[in-house]
């Protein structure tokens, strides 16, 4: 899977440092309780950003706002300088990989075609996009299989293919490495590497290794943005102690990659949700 290339995107103009998501002062409240407050962040084109935080830190709430599924109760958010459109324009702007989507009775090809957001049968150019997406994810042989007859790893690939089929400028992934065995996890990271620089990727994850592969990491703690920076700046014992409540040892990677982490244990006396 590492050899795959994002065929269609290659022809797109380079997206260098343009901001594709800009969010200012985001707050989310549910049933009168504040889950998220005052989050300001920008995502640049082609950038890979990880959202990391304890359970209940507001990761999912922030991700849902960034994916356009929930409106923030306060603050402002724009995608490529505008609100999210509907129909196929939306799928060209933003793709989403959901954490626990149940597979249904569509065939693999039918389901991936739905990722184009069309209101009619696909044109031949659009069918080519579907073929390209299936090729990229090595799903060609499964094209006519029903999704509810696939293995977990295959289904994850189909769902990712659907998120990417319209060649969006942004993809948002919710815990993509959850429930994946090491081989499928490596495969997923390879797919993400193949679109690095062309598609902005936002990943909510507990997987620190996955986070280390991102360009930036946003650390959420008790509903606020506690820290944001490069993996080298964030994956440090003091920051992880403060934001995740864990003790870690960080070792520089002899091969020049992001720092290697070893989990030592919980930080004694760490309060999960300090009073705001």
């Amino acid at each position: 899977m590492a050899r795959v290339a994002a065929a269609g995107w290659m022809t797109a103009e380079p997206v260098a440092s343009e901001t594709v998501i800009s969010a200012a002062g985001l707050a989310v409240a549910r049933d009168g309780r504040r889950i998220l407050s005052d989050v300001t962040l920008g995502v640049r084109g082609g950038e890979r950003l990880a959202l990391v935080g304890q359970n209940g830190a507001g990761k999912t709430s922030l991700l849902r706002v960034l994916a356009g599924l929930d409106r923030p109760s306060e603050g402002h958010i724009e995608w490529c300088g505008q609100r999210l459109p509907t129909g196929s324009e939306r799928t060209r702007m933003l793709g989403v990989l959901f954490q626990a989507e149940a597979p249904v009775g569509f065939t693999v090809r039918e389901l991936i075609t739905l990722g184009l957001g069309l209101d009619g049968p696909p044109s031949s150019r659009q069918s080519n996009l579907v073929d390209a997406a299936m090729g990229r994810m090595e799903l060609r042989e499964l094209a006519d299989r029903r999704c509810n007859a696939l293995s977990g790893g295959e289904w994850q690939r189909v769902a990712l293919a659907r998120a990417l089929v319209a060649e969006p400028r942004i993809v948002v992934l919710d815990e993509p490495t959850n429930h994946l065995d090491p081989a499928h996890r490596a495969e997923l990271l390879a797919v993400l590497d193949s679109i690095r620089g062309t598609v902005a990727v936002v990943i909510a994850t507990h997987d620190l290794e996955c986070a280390a592969s991102c360009d930036r990491i946003a650390m959420l703690s008790a509903g606020t943005l506690a820290a944001i920076g490069s993996p080298g700046e964030i994956l440090r014992p003091d920051v992880l102690q403060r934001t995740l409540g864990v003790q870690v040892r960080c070792v520089p990677d002899p091969h020049g990659g992001p720092p290697l982490l070893r989990l030592l244990g919980r930080q004694p006396g760490y309060k999960e949700h300090p009073p705001a």
Partner: peptide, 15 residues
Amino acid sequence: DRLTLGDDVAASLGV
């Protein structure tokens, strides 16, 4: 078709 995938998925697919 997209509605059968659930509200969140359908919304993310432009419905």
